[in-house]
Simulated scan of single mutants.
Amino acid sequence: MAVYREKDFHERRNAANDAKKALLDKFKARPAADDPQVLARQAERKAILEARALREAEKERLKQERLAREAKERAEREAIEAEARRIAEEAARDEARLREAEENERIARVLADEAERKAKRDARYAARKARVGRQPPKPFV
């Protein structure tokens, strides 16, 4: 079985220096900005970005068209609902006027019947008084 051995200070320092050196070598090995591979990669990225911008513009245009269509449909639906509401309110007003007219007619009939009954009662009373031959008492003046 292997025994674990901790690294001492010198080994750790050498490992850090090696890592720094590897990073520096990697940076130095990077191709220059005018390298054909770098230019090709930049052109490819540019093409991807342009295609993305076109897709986003198309998506935005479709979204605006959809929003405009929905707004138009909503406006049409609201106009239809407003017209239906206006017609319903007009019908309700007509029905209320009709009920009011019927109620007024009923009240007028009741009042006419009441007046007719009162007139018959007064006629009977006057006839009874005439048969008896008695005059009603005179009011005090």
Rank of each mutant, 00 (worst) to 15 (best):
D8N: 15
R12A: 04
N14M: 13
A15P: 04
A16T: 13
N17H: 14
D18M: 10
D18Y: 07
A19R: 15
K20M: 08
L24W: 06
K26T: 11
F27P: 00
F27G: 04
K28I: 09
R30I: 10
A33N: 12
A33H: 12
D35C: 01
V38R: 03
L39C: 08
A40D: 10
R41A: 13
Q42G: 05
A43G: 08
K46P: 00
A47M: 05
I48D: 08
E50D: 12
R52E: 14
R52K: 14
R52L: 08
A53G: 05
L54Q: 13
R55M: 07
A57I: 12
K59C: 02
K59P: 00
K59T: 02
L62W: 07
K63M: 04
K63H: 07
E70H: 01
A71L: 01
E73D: 06
E73R: 06
R74M: 04
A75D: 10
E78Q: 14
E78W: 05
A79Y: 07
E81G: 02
E81M: 09
E83K: 13
R85V: 03
R85N: 09
R85M: 09
R86D: 09
A88L: 11
E89G: 05
A91R: 15
A92K: 11
R93H: 03
R99M: 05
A101D: 12
E102W: 01
E103H: 10
N104W: 05
N104V: 11
E105V: 07
R106T: 08
R109S: 02
R109E: 04
L111K: 15
E114G: 02
E114F: 00
R117W: 04
R121M: 02
D122H: 02
D122Q: 04
A123K: 07
R124I: 09
R124T: 01
R128W: 04
R128G: 01
A130H: 11
V132A: 03
F140I: 15
F140V: 13
V141C: 13
